[in-house]
Amino acid sequence: MGKEKMRKKEFICIVCPNGCKLTAEVSEESGGSSVNVTGYSCKRGKEYGQTEAVHPVRSVTSTVRVTGGDHPLVPVKTVKEVPKEKIFECMEAIRALSVAAPVHIGQILIRNIAGTGIDLAATGNVKQVQ
């Protein structure tokens, strides 16, 4: 076995408004890393702690320009979290995009945004106007 290295990280769970203080101990072994999280009050918090300690991810929400609609914008989100360091690349793709009305809630507007493997979906409806 390779020698074990421990890293301790403290951060706040952002999954819900409770904001539990989490502590994650990451031990890096030759084969990878294992994370021990304490301080959570629910399963989602534990999962968040495990990801956050090793590779933080965030969902991105923004708006996309719409032409010919009853609104100039449609709100959008990445359907899952993307790696934190990819947020601004996602934003570039979002800003470069313009779609034609109608747009429906749930409609995928970009597949595999910024090479993350995650899609960008509309979170609102925009009707077409003549």
Partner: peptide, 12 residues
């Protein structure tokens, strides 16, 4: 505001 917003909106 909420701590979660301090973390994900400012610290990030």
């Amino acid at each position: 505001g909420l701590m979660r917003n301090v973390v994900q909106c400012l610290e990030d």
